[in-house]
């Protein structure tokens, strides 16, 4: 996949993964989230309590939205909040839906939503449960310009609060990233 890759991301900073398709951007994010194994090298998270893995300190957003179509918008968010160990009131959920202007759809079943709305619902989950690391794999796919702006706001709020952000994208996310890594010129073979 790729080799000789090393990077550090300090608090409040973002790392942008670039490179053509198939050079391992998604795999890197999945490895960070704990879904893959690395042959050599190590991933460390300094300054956090030791037993929690990186995955348990992170949010991962892949191409799938992890939404149950039979459940309503609010039930989906309530479940994920409870599952991540945080009980939430319906008003906090309404606020987070408001951040991606979905608040009027809270009682509708997720199956009725369009692709863009489902994506925004998945994104609203990131801020609902506070976790320091965000691993976003092409988060802006399927979003219109207004929603991309909302996404950019959410990401900047996250970094301003001292969170880490590692994202891969092909379109401009409306954010200036301090450090970038291009997996293409790291000898990333399209496997």
């Amino acid at each position: 996949m790729f080799s000789g890759l090393s990077f550090t991301v300090a608090q409040g900073e973002g790392l942008l993964l670039e490179g053509p398709n198939g050079t391992g951007k998604t795999s890197l994010l999945r490895i960070l989230a704990g879904f893959g194994a690395i042959e050599q090298g190590a991933l460390e998270l300094k300054g956090a309590d030791e037993e929690l893995t990186i995955g348990q300190r992170a949010h991962y957003l892949g191409h799938q939205n992890a939404l149950k179509l039979a459940l309503s918008v609010e039930e989906n968010l309530t479940f994920w909040a409870n599952f991540m160990g945080q009980s939430v009131s319906s008003s906090t959920i309404a606020d987070h839906l408001g951040a991606f202007n979905l608040e009027s759809l809270s009682s509708y079943s997720a199956g009725l939503l369009s692709a863009g709305q489902k994506r925004r619902l998945a994104l609203s989950r990131l801020e609902l449960v506070s976790r320091p690391i965000w691993l976003l794999d092409e988060p802006s796919v399927g979003l219109d310009t207004a929603s991309c702006a909302l996404l950019a706001d959410a990401m900047s709020r996250h970094m301003a609060a001292g969170g880490l952000l590692i994202a891969s994208t092909h379109t401009d996310l409306g954010l200036t990233f301090k450090n970038k890594v291009n997996l293409g010129d790291l000898g990333g073979r399209a496997t």
């Binding site: 704990g34 995955g55 348990q56 992170a58 991962y60 892949g62 799938q64 992890a66 939404l67 991540m84």
Partner: peptide
């Protein structure tokens, strides 16, 4: 739908 992956990242 990708929920299983996120469940591995949960506290449980």
């Amino acid at each position: 739908d990708g929920s299983l992956e996120l469940m591995t990242m949960g506290p449980m």
